[in-house]
Structure formats: C-alpha cells, structure tokens
Design a protein around this nucleic acid. Structure first.
Length: 1159
RNA sequence: GCCUCGAUGGCGGAAUUGGUAGACGCGCUGGAUUCAAAAUCCAGUUCUUUCGGGAGUGUGGGUUCGAUUCCCACUCGAGGUACCA
C-alpha cells in the first residue's frame, strides 16, 4: 500500500467538483464565515509557487472554520481587465477577451491542482459584461449622488436640485469643486438646463473636470498616483508628464476623514494602516490670506489685471492706521461687524480695509459693496464724504452709509438693506484672486516668523504680480521648471532655486512688507500652491532664506537658530510674537487661529494630501462608461439598459487624431429613443458640425474605467454572484455582511484597499450595504522569493581573441578559494594552495602568453531546475539549455576538470530525464552559487507549482509553503526542502498501514498516545487562530514522529489526527477518512475537542540554573512545596559541585518552572 | 530624510505572560539495508575545550535572581514614502 498521491489527489479533486462539496448557501443554521482572497489578474505566464501562498493560508482557515461549525464562503474569481492583455492585442491583433479566456483556463487548471476549497459557483470575472454591468451601475449611483458634509454621508443629487430651486446653494455644505460660487434660488431657476448640469457636475461624487493628470505618452494613457513609482509608470517604467485633460474623477476626498476614522475599527496590519493614514495625509492648520501690496512707483506690472488690487501707493502708511482702527472699533461698528463677520449674509466682508486711498469701514470685495457706519463727525463733512463716495463709485463700488444710531437701534433693518443690495449685485467670479495670496500652513503659531512668501512657479498669480524689473528672470525660471520632468525635480531636491517676483505682501499682524518669491520647492498641487515662509521653523524655508540671504527672524524662546531651523513642536515656546509670546505650540495654535478668524483674514482648516481619483483611462480593455454626450455634457444611460458592452474595434491603439482606442469603434453611439448602442454615422448632426438637428443619437464616452474599478466592490458581488437583477440582494448581503478574513499582498495598500473602502462607504450611505467597512481582518502574506543559481564564468585574460578563447566555468567553492588566494598573496605573498595557472594548464590553455589569471568571474544565471538539492549543476542539461556554452569546460569543487561527456547508460532515468550529478563527472562536482532574488522569468528562478504537484503532490506543496516560515514574512523558496514534508506525509500514511494493508485497531489508547493527540489538537487550534501555520506543520511532524515511535495504530487516535491535518493536507486526509470506513467527506466533520486532562503531569524535569545559566536537570514531583524543592536541589551532588563550597546568596524556586541558585 | 518591520547554527525557521536558546525541517557527516542506486532506518550536527567545563540570539549599555523576550543608544538589512508647507 503505497502512498499514491497522484491518484489520491486526482480522485478527490474530481469528487469535490462533482459533489460541489464547498458550495456555500446564502442561509444556514450555522454562523457565517467569509474568507476572501485577493483575486488574481490572469497573466499569460501562469502561476508560480509564490502566488498560491495566500490562497493556501486562506484555504486552511476556511477548511478549519468548516470543521468548527461555520457556514464558510470561500469564493474566487479573476481581475481580468488589464494592460498586458491589451498590449498583447496591440501586437498580435488577438482580441483581449480571447487571451484572457485562455489565461483563465490555465489559472483554473493550476488552482484546481492544489486542491482549494473554493466555491466556484460564485466565480466572477471583472471583464464579463454580466459582472461589469454592476461596475457601471455603481458608477451611475456615484454620479447621482453628492456628499453632504452636514449629514456626513452621500445623498441623492435630486435632493440638491430641490434645495437649489428653493434657496440656492448658500446653505449647502457639500463636498464640491473649489470654484463653486454662491447663487440664489432665483438664479438657479433662471439658469438654462445646461448651466444647471454644469453646476451639478461640481457636486457629483463622480464628475467630469479638466484635471492635471499624469500622462504616460508611451502607454498612451493617464495613470493614477499609485500607478506611478519613482516618477515613472509602474508598468513598463515609462516617463510620466503632467498634462491637463478632461477626465472623470471620483470625489474620494469627500470621504477622507471617514476613511481615516474607519481604520480604528478594522483589524488590519499596522504598516498598512500607516501607509493609508500617510496617503490620506490629514494635517491641521489654517488658511491665511496675505494681501498683496501695490507696486512702488515706476515698477508697475504691465498686466492690466493688476487692477484687482485694492489700496494705492500711499497704502503702506494707511495700513498701520487701518490696523489700529480695527483694534478699536466704535460700538456701532462692533455690532455690525459681529453680524457681517459670521457670514449671516453669505458674503465675506473685510473690516477697515484699504480701497484706493481710503480706509472703508466694511467691504465685500467680491460684490464690490462698501458699508460705512458714520458717527456724529460725519454730519459736518457731508461734502467730503460725498466726494469720497464718488471716487469709490467710480472704482465700481456701491457705497452704503448708515448712522451709528441705525446700527445700534435696528440692526436687522440695516442688515436687510445690505442684503438687498448684495442680491442686486452681479454674480461674482470669486473674491478677486489678484488681491491676496492664500496659504495653508500647519504652523500658524509661527506666523510672526514669516519673512517671505514663496509661490509655486505654476501659481496663477505669478504673472500678475511680477514687476517689470523682475519679469525676465521670473519668466526664465518658470520656463526652466516646466521643462524639468517630475523625475528630475524629484531626484534633485538638494539644489535650491527661486526668483524674487518684485512684489510684496503685507503681514496681516505686523503690517510688515514681505517679499514674494517663487521657488520649485513649493508644489502647485498641494495646499494652495503657496507658502508663508517661516525660515526659523521650517527646514526648507531656512535653506531657501540662507541661500538667498533673506531674513531669518527668531520667534522661539531660548533656541539657537544660527545653523538650522527649529522644528520640534513639543518644546516650542513662542517669542517675539505679540500676543503669542510665551505660549506653547498647542496654546499658540488655538490662540492664533482664533485671532485670524476674528480679524477675518483666514480660518482654521484641516487639509488632506489625498487627491480626487482620476477615473478615466485611454484604454480598450476596461469597463466602458455608461455615458453619452449631449452638447458636450455627460448623460447617464438608465441602469436598466446595462451592461453597455465593450464595442468591437479594428485596432487597439489610440486613433490617429489622438482619441482613445474606443475612438476606432464604428458602432458606438447611444440612441435615446431605442435605448441601444447604434452606429456612429447616425449621431445627431449638432454633435458633429454645429447643426441644430437632433435625432436623439449621441456619441458614447471613449474612455474606459481604470483597473481598480472592477476590484472595488467585487467581494460584495460574491455574496450574490449570479443575481441578474440586483448587485447584491438584501437577503444575501444581510446574511454575509462583510469579509471575516481577507488575505492578499501589501502592494495594494494605497490602491485597491483604499478605493474599495471608499466605495464600500458610499454604498453603505446609499443603504445598499449594511456595513461601512468590508473586511474585519486583513493579512498581508509575504512574498516568496526565488533562490537563483549561478555559474561563474572565468574572465581570465590571456589576450587571445574572443573567438578562440575557451569558456571556463568555475565552481563556486573553487572560485571563492581563488579569490581568497589572490588576497592572501597580495597581503603576505604566501604559498598558493590553489594555483589558477595550474587550473588553466589542465584546461589546455596556453601559458606562454602573458595572462592575468586572477581576473574576475562573471555570474551567469542558471535555470534552477538544472540544479539539485546539493547545489550541483547538471552540466549536460546546462549545455543543452544554453548551446553557446556547449564546448565550455567546468572546473569542479575540488579543482578538477569535469569530463565533458557522460558515461553511457548512466544518469538517465526511466522517463529519459537527465540526472547526471557529481560522481559521473570524474569524481568532482560543479557547485553553483545561490542568491535570493525576486522570482522572475529573466532570473530563471521561477518554480512552477504544477511541477511540484507532479513530483510531490499538492498536499506536499501546501504543507511546504506553510512550513517555509511565518505567513506575513518574505522568505526564499528552495525546492530541496520539500522532501521533509513529503516524507512526513509518507510517515503519516504508514501509521494507518499494517503489513502492507490498510488497517487500524480498535484497542484502547495509552496515556502517551492520548497526550500526543491532545497536545497536537491544542497547538494546531491555537496556531490556526493565530495564523501561525508554519508551527503547526512542525507540530504535525512531532505528532507523527511520536506516534510512529509508539507504534500507534489505534482508530481513536488516528481518526481525529486525520481531521486536524485535513485543512493542511486535504487529499490524503479524505483518502484516509474514506479508508477508515466513512462515506461523507472529511471536510464536514467536527474538529476533535481538546481535553486538558490528558496533558496533566505528575512530575517535572526542573532546569537547575546558577546565576541564570541552566547547568543540569532534575526530575521532581509537581506537588512539592518550594521548601522541599530547594532542599532536594541543594542536596544534589551536582549542586555542590557547582557551588564548590560556597553558600548561595539566594535560591529562587518557581514551582513548575525553574530553580535558580544565586551565589 | 521620514514611517514601518526585521537581525537567532551552513540554510528556512522555533522559543505565546521574562524562566532549559536552537523545536521542526533542509543540508552535511557517519552507519545499517542494497550487486548498485533510489527509498527507508539509526546516530551525530551552535561554537569552543586541557572533555571538568566555558562562551553564545547584530553591537554597546541598563533593569532583573534570571533577558532572544523589557528599556536606552547605535550598526546593518527589507518594505513603504517623499520638497505635503
């Protein structure tokens, strides 16, 4: 009775498939358990042994949970849209669907061979229209939603429309584009349908906008931030440039805070949480506005737009005055300011602001309305005031005058009047971007340390504020920066560069003039693209200031900033900062934000690094959008007509006029009457050439969705994978709810694992899903690296020409010796043990020429399948594999030349495989070098699981992958190690065999046997719960070794043993179970129950240590008291020998554990 | 630079609350079996030693009766991230 794993495994794999053993039902009396793997992209290369690692772990867990009485769902599918299939299509013309289908077949065959307990009835493929129908559906849901910040959740866009028509958008607190302006209900109702749509687009959770994108010209597509590594594309390593394009985006930023908060609720690896936290990048601080000062006489900017600026040439004199007036308002001013400041009127007002040469009481710059509150004194200067009003009105301002009494008497009436005036004012274009610089800072507490400002070269204000004197320099700098690629700019962070614009800003607290610079250390894409530079408190500002000789005022108490900036928040005490003096960082932050808000030039703000996610790709092999364009505006196709199926195209490349590949499709237009995809030729003429005919046929979107679209909610679809009517039914989702265990690689930390949490939260908000975090526990399996093998080519130099030069490979140990000899000779001129000259002579290379025999060796990758477990190279195989080396000579481990030919009839096994190692080659061996590298085709270190299954079986593969080391750790694969687990399985099999027959006895078990069984149950149970799969494999080995030693053949021991091994080695367990007389699959049997009484011991072998070092052992009963133990130990003759007559200072006795004698 | 993780025999790794360091396996050495090989079985395998023992978990310190485990400083390695104001 041999352990015929090939037959056993094939039989049981057939059985499981036929009986649908692992099909999970959507209802059960048992508690549910959902085990999920990250589904694979089916690449053409197939699986290597690194891929199934996580699947084996999750499969063990799933099988274990079935034994523990759970209704387990363990689904699998394919993330089958993607670039490689498309690139293959571009090269060969083969439709990606065909390649994908073929690859999936290979994957499935390989997966089936490993014996996973997947429920294949739930299989999904992201490229299957029946699946991507739901990806499109989710997209539509996002389009039809906006994010309400007050409710802190997504809400239907229809709600928004209703509110707009009733009260405009002033009370809406929603996540939206930055350029949204305030409008009234009246405005809204007067807008055309198109205008309305444009505005709504600014609120939708997926929206179309002109965005700066990462464009990869070689790939012809945009890339998401997480698809770029070190400034080049992750796939292919092509350069990436910044480009503006009309793109779909996902408003993931709306969920930034909730994505952060949710991390506390889930049991995910800390490093992964950390990288998500970092990626979201929350920072608390303040937005602060710095007014820009007008140019000194003679240095005006040529740009006319500069007229936005308020104040004039004598303004710096007046500013001090204005500051004073702000600090000491009249009673009436204070009362009115209280109302204006709080934005009761939906407009931002400034207090005591400079307009031209005047200081006005209040001004709303965007609506150009000035409010003056006059005291008695104005009664005497009516004329003067009228003149002033006239000047201001000439500047386009509306001036409202009130008397002190009015403001104090009937404030509401005053406010109403202002409001009326505000509503009459034309729609603003925002608050005049030319008049101030907004910055975001996390250190507003250091605002008194600001000595200059820096704008990103791309900042929109740069051209407006640059003085004519600085114009040339600034333009040259901006041009130079824009030329530099992202990569260059990143690589070179040390060089400090920048240019002064000639303009100055005004410090809002001190009123000092602050020079405005531009510099490429400020990024256009973060914050506002401008910084207030505090050189004493920021390293980059410090370096910039030092480099250009700018002021470095010190605002820290007792800190020396002569050599570097002081950045430690914890010990910060602010000085030289007016009202902030003496305050700690925390207190100063609070205080300064309060002051900034009071004074109205800024507010406390939380900023996120997270950007909205670009959702368009210029690719063919992806989900098409359910979108058509009418008058250039996107329209959703009704969900009931989904899926919108990917059209056929002739070519998979972008079109000649630069449109995405879908631009090649001829049948790619939407008929709104028939609700179907029709030929492009029918498209409404107005869409084509400005005609006004409209037949209801419009062009469809040409972009496709990115790779992460299909993977962002696939785990929910598994719950109800075959439901044609719903994404997931309420019933199914309320039963399965969420993933209990998710296993996959950590490389998805800031991609898939973040986007999917975002979609989950959105679908939760919509009431489609019952939970807002989809995976309770996540484990990142480590990578399995390859152990590459090397042969070393001797680059001896004998000046022969390359053609006649003999190729010599030197064995690793010999090469090491030669290299060691060289250094010995160089150092001491010692005798040579291995003489390379002699080696060369043996290989018949002429010695007569001048040679440099101590030369170098070139490692050459050798296919790992040509190397045996002792690192010996199959030379003949190597020569066959690399014919260019067919005449090479090999110097072995002992410095012998290995015979180039095989002795006949040897080294070939029955299957005609060459096995010629060592002995056959003149008594010497060629030993290769080994190095751990990533598994890759080009390194010839890829190991295919099929070959392992063929030679050792799937159970061996499963056990070995687990045995390699801790799941989460990366570890090298070395096929030789598998013999250990293979012989373990054979030993296990033998336990059930007597005299070559399958047979177990029904005898009562001994105490020893029960002890072995129960300690194994306990340990394996603990190990699986802790995902410590490697240690349970050793536990099995120990158990089998012990039972073999005990010659145990008893059913009561061997039955439970088969069950506890089943999750790891299911095939052999099923076979044993069947042979034990059971007819049901072992996978459904209850796990044996651990009984502690079998482990109770009566005595213990105490380690006796002296000063903490164990010196000998002593068997003592466990019921002995401390005193008795001490007495017994002291009486032992070895104790006396150790002490050598000394009296111990102290004796520590820990009953049941240890005895330690100090002295 | 920052964040995270790690460092234990020739190799992968074990030691769950501080208590016998090196479980289990690979590889290696010797032996048995065999005509021979494969397979199997047995013994040994951290280093060192004057065979009593001694040293030893990246380095240096500390806490403790006792440290691979806790604390401090450092070195090296892996992964992530990067001018984020």
């Amino acid at each position: 009775m041999e352990y015929n794993f090939r037959k056993i495994e094939a039989d049981w794999q057939k059985y499981w498939a036929k009986n649908q053993t692992f099909k999970a039902e959507n209802k059960s009396d048992k508690p549910k358990f959902y085990v999920l793997d990250m589904f694979p992209y089916p690449s053409g290369a197939g699986l290597h042994v690194g891929h199934p690692l996580g699947y084996i772990a999750s499969d063990i867990y799933a099988r274990y949970k079935r034994h523990k009485g759970f209704n387990v769902m363990h689904p699998q599918g394919y993330d089958s849209f993607g670039l490689p299939a498309e690139q293959y299509a571009i090269q060969t013309g083969q439709h990606p669907a065909i390649t994908t289908e073929a690859n999936i077949k290979t994957y499935r065959r390989q997966l089936d061979k490993i014996g996973f307990s997947f429920d294949w009835s739930r299989e999904i493929r992201t490229s299957d229209p029946n699946y991507y129908k739901w990806t499109q559906w989710i997209f539509i849901q996002l389009f039809e939603s906006y994010y309400c910040k007050d409710a802190d959740k997504a809400r239907p866009i229809s709600e928004l429309k209703e509110v707009f028509s009733l009260e405009g958008n002033k009370n809406i607190n929603a996540a939206c584009d930055d350029d949204v302006t305030i409008f009234s209900a009246e405005d809204w109702n007067n807008y055309s349908e198109e205008e309305k749509q444009k505005i709504l687009l600014k609120y939708r959770l997926t929206f179309l906008s002109e965005t700066q994108v990462n464009w990869c010209p070689q790939l012809g597509t945009v890339l998401a931030n997480d698809e770029i590594v070190n400034g080049v594309s992750e796939r292919g390593g092509y350069p990436v440039i910044r480009k503006k394009m009309m793109q779909w985006s996902m408003r993931i930023t709306a969920y930034a805070q909730r994505l952060l908060d949710g991390l506390d609720k889930i049991d995910w690896p800390q490093p992964l949480k950390d990288s998500q936290t970092y990626w979201i990048g929350r920072s608390e601080g303040a937005m602060v506005s710095f007014p820009i000062l007008p140019f000194p006489k003679g240095e005006e900017n040529s740009s006319q737009e500069f007229g936005y600026m308020t104040g004039r040439n004598n303004s710096h004199l007046l500013l001090e005055k204005a500051k004073e007036m702000r600090a000491n308002p009249t009673e009436a001013e204070a009362v009115l300011w209280a109302s204006l400041k709080s934005k009761k009127l939906d407009c931002k007002f400034r207090q005591q602001h400079l307009i031209d040469d005047f200081i006005v009481d209040f001004v709303c710059l965007s609506k150009k309305i000035i409010i003056e509150v006059d005291g008695k004194i104005h009664d005497t200067q009516v004329e003067k005031d009228a003149e002033r009003t006239k000047i201001l009105e000439n500047l386009g301002y509306k001036v409202l005058r009130f008397k002190n009494e009015e403001a104090l008497g009937d404030l509401n009436k005053v406010l109403l009047e202002i409001k009326e005036e505000l509503e009459k004012a034309p729609l603003s274009i925002g608050e005049g971007p030319g008049e101030r610089i907004d910055v975001f800072t996390t250190r507003p507490d250091t605002i008194f340390g600001v000595s200059f400002m820096t704008l990103a070269p791309e900042h929109e204000l740069v051209t407006k504020i640059t003085t004519s004197a600085q114009k040339d320099k600034v333009e040259a700098y901006v041009k130079a920066t824009s030329k530099r690629s992202e990569l260059e700019r990143m690589a070179d962070v040390k060089t400090i560069s920048g240019v002064f614009t000639g303009a100055y800003a005004l410090h809002p607290f001190t009123g000092k003039k602050i020079p405005i610079w531009i510099g490429d250390y400020v990024l256009a894409g973060y914050g506002t693209g401008a910084v207030m530079a505090v050189p004493c408190g920021d390293e980059r500002d410090y370096a910039f200031a030092k480099h250009f000789g700018l002021d470095i005022p010190n605002i820290f108490e007792n800190v020396d900033i002569s050599t570097e900036a002081f950045i430690d928040k914890g010990t910060t005490v602010i000085a030289n900062s007016d009202f902030l003096n003496g305050l700690s960082y925390k207190k100063a932050m609070k205080r300064v934000i309060f002051e900034i808000e009071q004074k109205g030039f800024g507010y406390g703000k939380i900023n996120y690094r997270l950007r909205d996610a670009v959702f368009s790709r210029q690719r063919y092999w992806g989900e098409p959008f359910p979108v058509y364009y009418k008058n250039g505006l996107p329209q959703m196709i009704d969900s009931k007509y989904l899926p919108i199926v990917l059209p056929k195209v002739e070519k998979y490349l972008p079109t000649e006029d630069g449109k995405p590949p879908l631009g090649n499709a001829t049948v790619w237009a939407w008929d709104v009457n028939k609700n179907e995809v029709v030929s492009n030729e029918l498209v409404t003429l107005s869409e084509v050439e400005g005609s006004h005919q409209d037949n209801g046929i419009y062009p469809l979107e040409l972009n496709t969705m990115p790779g992460w679209a299909g993977s962002s909610s696939y785990f929910n679809r598994y719950m109800d994978a075959n439901n044609p009517d719903e994404f997931v039914s309420k019933e199914a989702v309320n039963y399965w709810r969420d993933v209990d265990l998710y296993i996959g690689g950590s490389e998805h930390a800031t991609g898939h694992l973040l986007y999917s949490r975002f979609w989950q939260k959105f679908l939760f908000d919509k009431g489609i899903l019952p939970v807002d975090e989809y995976a309770k526990k996540l484990i990142n399996q480590g990578m399995i690296t390859g152990t590459s093998a090397f042969a070393y080519r001797w680059e001896y130099n004998n000046h022969e020409d390359d053609k006649t030069k003999k190729i010599i490979f030197v064995s690793k140990p010999t090469m090491d010796k030669i290299i060691a000899e060289r250094s010995t000779i160089e150092k001491a001129g010692k005798e040579v043990k291995i003489d390379p000259t002699e080696l060369l002579r043996q290989t018949e290379i002429s010695k007569s020429k001048e040679t440099n025999i101590w030369s170098n060796f070139t490692p050459i990758h050798v296919d790992v399948s040509l190397v045996n477990s002792s690192d010996e190279l199959d030379i003949e195989g190597f020569k066959k594999w690399r014919p260019e080396f067919k005449n090479a000579e090999f110097i072995g481990e002992n410095g012998k030349i290995l015979s180039p030919t095989l002795s006949k009839g040897k080294g070939v096994n029955s299957e005609n495989k060459v096995l010629p190692f060592g002995e056959d080659l003149g008594g010497d061996k060629y030993i290769v070098g080994r190095e751990v590298e990533k598994m890759s085709k080009s390194k010839y270190n890829v190991v295919n699981p099929d070959a392992i299954c063929e030679e050792y079986g799937a159970d061996s593969l499963r056990l070995f992958e687990m045995f390699l080391g801790p799941l989460e750790q990366s570890k090298p694969w070395k096929t030789s190690g598998i013999s250990g687990v293979f012989s373990f399985l054979k030993k296990l099999w033998k336990l059930y065999i007597v005299n070559n027959e399958f047979s177990v006895s029904d005898e009562e078990p001994t105490k020893e046997e029960l002890k072995t069984l129960h300690k194994t149950i306990k340990k394996v149970e603990e190990d699986i719960e802790n995902f410590s799969f490697n240690t349970s494999v050793s536990t099995f080995m120990i158990a089998v070794n012990e039972l073999t030693a005990l010659k145990c053949n008893k059913r009561v021991i061997l039955e439970p043993l088969a069950i506890i091994i089943e999750p790891y080695a299911p095939h052999i367990s099923e076979e044993l179970w069947r042979k034990l007389g059971h007819t049901e699959s072992i996978s459904k049997v209850d796990f044996p129950i651990f009984n502690a009484t079998y482990l109770v011991e009566s005595s213990k072998e105490y380690p006796i240590s002296f000063n903490g070092k164990m010196r000998f052992k002593m068997e003592l009963p466990l019921d002995m008291s401390k005193e008795q133990i001490e007495k017994a130990v002291m009486a032992h003759k070895k104790t006396q020998a150790q002490l050598q007559g000394r009296t111990p200072k102290k004796v520590i006795v820990v009953p049941g554990k240890i005895v330690n004698i100090v002295g």
